[in-house]
Amino acid sequence: MAAVRWGILGAANFARHHMAPAIHAAKGAELVALATSDPAKAVPFQAFCPGLRLHDSYEALLADPGIDAVYIPLPNHLHVEWTLKALAAGKHVLCEKPIAMQDSDFDALIAARDASGLLAAEAYMIVHHPQWQRARDLVQSGAIGRVEHADVVFSYDNRADLANIRNRPETGGGGIRDIGVYAYGSVRFVTGAEPEDLQARVRFENGVDTWAQVTGTFAGPQGRFSYAALTSMRLFPRQEVVFQGETGLIRLTAPFNANVFGEARVELHRPGLSMTVERFPAANHYVLQVEAFCTSVRTGAAYPCPLEFVRGTQAMIDRIFAAAVAVS
């Protein structure tokens, strides 16, 4: 079966360092084209993909008949527009998160996906990592009893880079859209639960959220449990997720930037100070994401993270912004 031929809209740093190499390395995928108006920005991509075709506009890349799928790493506020344009051009789409700016955007995205018969998905890579699949299996099999509490911390510090799109309101910046998607969606993925009530304390700088503390209650197959999440673009880097149950605890030590922030590990804590640790040193969730996408394109198999799931996380983000109490 022929490989899925990929093009990338824009020479973003994230694409250069992570997703372009992942597409190039993934089984069933072939990176064939890049759209950029600056040929100098293409040089690092051509270093590992010498035959890469260059297009000087996004429209030209979408018109290329030798491309089956596009990856979109553009600023957040452009995601819906270019996802819809790519689907209209007959291309499958993998778009960086968040694929939308609000829940209502999904009406057009899902309608275009269904009308075209193409695959459109958000690049929510963590669900493809075996550490998250293992955590979900443990929780849903009752390994820690009924879940009573989940808490998440995800922080980094980019205060020195005010030109960064994450620090700019006009590009859909802010910590909630950048990393809150992980703090919120990961708990939904593992537990199958949805938020019931939410409270939020949020610190804003220049029109973007830089610190957010979200608390509330989730309800799902195992009942209700309490929830707490802290995200920030102004704190020392930290990542950790804990699922606390009646009879045990699961802790992920590098949940979101596996093998960059640290080794991907799932700790299972049991009574009597017992702890079992599973390590995942070789897994690359970007490569696994591309391979899952290509498998769905090539075989018609259901994609593990459809837009309907992503929409649930965006709905939670909308509720958080609506409930936000600004703090200094």
Rank of each mutant, 00 (worst) to 15 (best):
Y71T: 06
V190H: 09
N259Y: 06
H149R: 13
Q140I: 06
R298D: 09
P271R: 03
R270W: 08
S296G: 07
I126H: 10
A264N: 03
L9M: 11
S226R: 12
F48Y: 11
L119Y: 05
A29M: 02
L31I: 08
G245K: 07
F293M: 11
G175M: 07
S104Q: 12
A326K: 15
K27M: 15
E81S: 11
L268R: 04
A25E: 15
I320K: 00
A63L: 08
L62E: 05
D105T: 01
F321M: 13
N259P: 02
E291F: 01
A258W: 08
D209V: 05
G207H: 04
T171I: 06
Q289C: 13
G117M: 09
G185H: 04
A282T: 15
N13W: 12
Q133T: 04
T36H: 04
T247N: 12
K41Y: 07
Q199H: 12
G272P: 01
A258S: 15
G192C: 04
A283G: 02
F218A: 07
T295G: 15
V190W: 10
P221A: 14
R168S: 07
L119A: 03
T276L: 13
R5C: 04
A15R: 01
T210I: 15
F309D: 15
T191R: 07
A108H: 06
M125L: 14
P44L: 00
F309A: 09
A160F: 14
V4Q: 03
I67F: 08
G220Q: 01
A88I: 03
Y156T: 10
H18K: 14
R188V: 15
D151G: 08
M19N: 06
L87Q: 02
L307H: 03
A120V: 11
E30L: 10
A163V: 15
I99N: 02
F321G: 11
